[in-house]
């Protein structure tokens, strides 16, 4: 059984909404409190990227319970400018001096799986998943 929620993301207050909905979607899946923190933080980062770099987009939350392997998938989609070099973005870490960048390697570390699809001038879709144990 799958439960899906879509959160439109346009302003920074939507980031808070996306976090909250993410927590709501993940709670029934028996994640530990640490895993919940990892998930909501990943959502926060992805949502902020949308607001900052694409202007608007959406976050789709897909929780699968019973039957399918239980877990949560977060899909961050936008029609923004796209990422010029995805491989590069995945290599650059957060610089602790504070430049934000996309922080994709960081998000990757928070979740179990990550897939980035981006076309210049068309948009970006980032899919991350965490499996419940």
């Amino acid at each position: 059984m799958r439960v899906e929620t879509t959160v439109p993301v346009r302003t920074e207050s939507d980031i808070v909404v996306a976090r909250r909905k993410g927590r709501e979607a993940a709670t029934p899946l028996n994640f530990s409190s640490t895993e919940l923190a990892l998930i909501t933080t990943a959502i926060s980062e992805l949502a902020r990227n949308i607001v900052r770099y694409a202007g608007s987009g959406e976050i789709l939350l897909r929780a699968s319970v019973n039957g399918d392997r239980p877990g949560i998938t977060v899909i961050a989609r936008d029609q923004g400018p796209g990422i010029a070099n995805v491989a590069h973005a995945m290599r650059d870490g957060f610089s602790t001096s504070g430049s934000l960048g996309l922080g994709l390697p960081g998000v990757r570390r928070l979740m179990d799986e990550m897939e980035v699809v981006s076309v210049l001038g068309e948009g970006t879709t980032i899919t991350v998943t965490k499996w419940a144990r």
Partner: peptide, 17 residues
Amino acid sequence: IQPEIAFTMARLGLTLK
């Protein structure tokens, strides 16, 4: 800072140096 948050920050590489 809560234990789960500290864990997450460390994973993300946020050290509040």
